Amino acid sequence: MSTLTLHKGITLNHFQLKVLGILLMVFDHVHQFFYIDGIPMWFTWLGRIVAPIFLFLSAEGFHYTRNRFKYLLHLYIGFVGMNFVSQELQTAFPSDNVLINNIFGTLFLAVLYMLLIDQLIQSILQHHWWKMLGTIGLMIVPVLLSFLAISLLSQEHIPSWSLYLIYVLPIPMLVEGSYLFVLVGVMFYLLRKHRIGQIAFFILFSLIIGFMSGPSLLDLDTNFQWLMIFAVIPIWLYNGEKGRNMKYFFYLFYPAHIYFLYLLAYWIQQ
């Protein structure tokens, strides 16, 4: 089934889907920074569908972008920039809240593997065996970095240089959502011509996460990540159209609203 319009009636274009993700993201982060002040749990339940939406849009964006390396570069700059700004902000304004948010690393790795998979397929079809081996090697590097990071972080005295390594290198085990969200982004890309396949994969993935996280899917106080399953609704409504162009809005709004909420929480605590 094509990623184009699947049905008549209500549909969402790329811009509208992104706006929906941004709005629900704000709900999620308001709960993150103010849950001790009585923000209800359902704020974060709504936020469960946000990461899948942006992973889905990253697959679409990667397919349509004119410059894939520039797309990767923007995500990488966002990742590194947020890491250093977050560190400096927490040093200047120490708080009970911890700035762990940085979806740019997850999106970067997902898009990187999309690029490498395309390159691997092309090298196989063209019988470029050395290029194929080189691509496989590049695909293994982030995995090896994960083992290195785990080894360094498990030491009693963590080397200071290793922290800077983590700041500048997106590592599958340490990015937001870990390697599982990277896998989600890659699968959305591989199945992008088959919307039903995307939906079926993500429903199965969400249910597995739910059953692995607790004995009951109804215990939403502790086992709520599986609620991301409802991202299939806006994904199903996606009509494949671009809509309004606000290319850099997310790159600016995402860190800006997180830092605003962090500082607001800090000032309220003071």
Rank of each mutant, 00 (worst) to 15 (best):
L73E: 10
P40Q: 02
H63P: 00
Q119I: 00
D37M: 13
F27I: 02
L75D: 11
H63A: 10
L24V: 01
G78N: 06
M41V: 11
L89R: 02
L99A: 12
F69H: 12
L55T: 03
W45V: 02
W45N: 01
F108Y: 12
M82L: 04
I22G: 03
Y64G: 05
K70N: 15
H63N: 09
Q87L: 11
W45G: 03
I49Q: 03
D96G: 09
L72S: 07
V30K: 09
L99K: 05
R66C: 00
I22W: 01
S86N: 12
R66P: 04
L24S: 05
W45I: 02
G47S: 10
F27Q: 08
T106G: 08
V111R: 12
L99V: 04
R66E: 07
E60W: 13
T91S: 15
Q119E: 14
F54S: 02
S86H: 05
D118A: 06
R48K: 12
L109Q: 10
I22Q: 11
L24C: 04
P94A: 04
L46H: 11
V111W: 14
L55M: 12
Y64I: 01
H29Q: 13
T106M: 10
N83P: 04
I100P: 12
G61W: 08
I22H: 03
R48F: 08
N101K: 10
D37V: 00
G81R: 07
V26K: 12
L107E: 00
V98Q: 14
M114Q: 09
A59N: 01
G105M: 04
L72I: 10
